[in-house]
Design a protein around this nucleic acid. Structure first.
Length: 462
RNA sequence: GCUCCGGUAGUGUAGUCCGGUCAAUCAUUCCGGCCUUUCGAGCCGAAAACUCGGGUUCAAAUCCCGGCCGGAGCACCA
């Protein structure tokens, strides 16, 4: 099995399906999992040098360490060798039609003037291509199929073109001016890498039909293939790697791990576990139907994984101060988890706390509240309240609400969510949880990203 | 325009290859109830589907034909 990305950006939720499904088959049935970088386009989908490592990192994170890593851009001489073989056998030809001319002929099932000249001539032209005698967009090496094939997608397809822009990898640079197209490069590689099975998106369905011509010419057997449909997430619109890149460069996003983005780096920073992603995509299966689903499913899986390990803390957004009369200094002892024994956190409360303004905005004097794990209070006026006992049962009888709170000397917290930033005050203990996922009670799960004076948290999900 | 795929509850998914065991699986969402000093979880319950029309057959989600709907390919992108 293989996963064959073009590293022109970091892995996204879309790439994850390829990584998870292919690696899962290997885990289940044995075999080898190969990552092949299809980085054969130095211009239109120009690879990012950093992204190669990003893919490897993210694969490792997802529990999909490859048995082998291959870069197509290292292997151009191999592709040239097979091209030459095909030219000599009369299965490929150098075509100097313009794109428009060729399309017109092809659509009318007509061969172009170059198709039927001798292999010797094409071999000569091919050498000239390699030597750089041709400019970009003036020439292409085509594989002969059946120019009268009823499916226009299969008629004599392009295998190599001239690209004079250097490749972004310094090891490659301007070494080559003739680059293979995906169908050719993939065809050769899948055979050479010993691929027995291919699972990929159904946009590549016709590739199989095109590549089979090459396999037939070379006497190879095509791997078993299956294809999955398109995935659309309700939460993310249409996104392309190049589109994201532009938006990031324009400053619309803070970077490739902006919490609004569907990149793996962003999901990881938000505290999504790799196991949740694996389960999510394995449960999705490999059907050919297009699916459109909500991140809720992923979040549900993630919640099951993180809940028992996530310590609870109070975070008060849009805080307002409440001065409480009649209370004594109290050392509150609060469990770090409601059902798992994870110990306690302690907060000393003198005579004021912070609460969310929305919790008391409608409160009238006389209304009873329970400050969770502390004591009861009764509202007496704007920003003031009085102590109303410690017994929760009496409060329950009266039907008061339980709200959370924060100490007045808590630390500032900023939560980055897909919908924007939320700021407030949290208890000091949060600062000890850097790089862990915790739950802000009555708010949701967050991953504590940093705590230098101010805590920066990335919202995970509710 | 030509060509290729697909269509099972709100959303995914199993079953389709090899027709009966399907009065259709599982998960999730929504809605009730229990439990709970947050949220969630847990437990109980409820609702919810074979795209349509023909055909073959004793028997069709399953096989065949047609319609409708959706997606993809027809690049000197991957």
């Amino acid at each position: 099995m293989r996963f064959a990305p073009n590293p022109n950006g970091p892995p996204t939720l879309g790439s994850t399906r390829g990584i998870v499904v292919n690696s899962e088959y290997v885990k289940k049935y044995g075999g080898r999992f190969i990552i092949r970088f299809d980085d054969t386009d130095p211009v239109t989908k120009r690879p990012m040098p950093e992204a190669y490592d990003w893919y490897l990192e993210d694969c490792k994170w997802l529990g999909a360490e490859p048995d082998e890593v291959v870069m197509a851009s290292d292997r151009l001489p191999i592709y040239y060798e097979y091209a030459e073989k095909l030219i000599k056998a009369g299965h490929a030809y150098v075509c100097t039609c313009t794109r428009e001319e060729f399309k017109k002929l092809k659509d009318n099932k007509q061969a172009c003037p170059h198709r039927d000249t001798s292999p010797e001539h094409h071999l000569h032209e091919w050498k000239r291509m390699l030597a750089g005698d041709y400019e970009e967009r003036t020439v292409v090496l085509r594989i002969k199929t059946d120019i009268k094939h009823k499916d226009p997608a299969l008629r004599d397809w392009g295998a190599f073109r001239v690209v004079k822009t250097p490749h972004p990898r310094p090891e490659v640079g301007d070494k080559y001016v003739v680059w293979p197209l995906l169908d050719f490069e993939g065809a050769i590689e899948d055979h050479l890498l010993g691929m027995t099975h291919i699972i990929r998106g159904k946009d590549l369905m016709d590739s199989e039909l095109r590549q089979k011509y090459v396999y037939d010419y070379l006497g190879w057997t095509y791997p078993h293939t299956s294809h999955w449909g398109r995935v659309k997430m309700h939460e993310f619109g249409k996104f392309s790697t190049s589109g994201l890149r532009e938006a990031i460069e324009a400053g619309e996003y803070s970077g490739w791990d902006d919490p609004r983005l569907p990149t793996l780096r962003a999901l990881r920073r938000r505290g999504i576990r790799p196991e949740a992603l694996r389960k999510f995509f394995i449960d999705m299966g490999v059907g050919e139907t297009d699916v459109s689903l909500s991140l809720d499913n992923l979040h549900a899986e993630n919640r099951k994984l993180i809940d028992a390990d996530a310590n609870r803390y109070f975070f008060v957004w849009d805080p307002v101060r409440l001065d409480i009369s009649g209370s004594q200094v109290t050392d509150a002892k609060l469990p770090l988890h409601p059902s798992v024994d994870r110990g306690f956190r302690e907060i000393t409360v003198e005579s004021s706390v912070l609460v969310c303004s929305q919790d008391i905005s409608d409160a009238k004097p006389g209304d009873l509240f329970r400050l969770k794990d502390l004591y009861n209070i009764r509202i007496t006026g704007e920003g003031t309240a009085e102590f109303a006992g410690r017994d929760i049962e009496t409060m329950k009888k009266e039907g008061g609400r339980i709200i959370h709170w924060a100490p007045v000397d808590g630390i500032p917290v900023k939560v980055l969510t897909p919908d924007g930033e939320i700021t407030g005050i949290g208890e000091a203990g949060i600062a000890t949880e850097v790089d862990r996922v915790v739950q802000f009670e009555r708010f949701g799960y967050v991953r504590i990203d940093s705590a230098n004076g101010e805590v920066i948290a990335y919202f995970t999900h509710r």
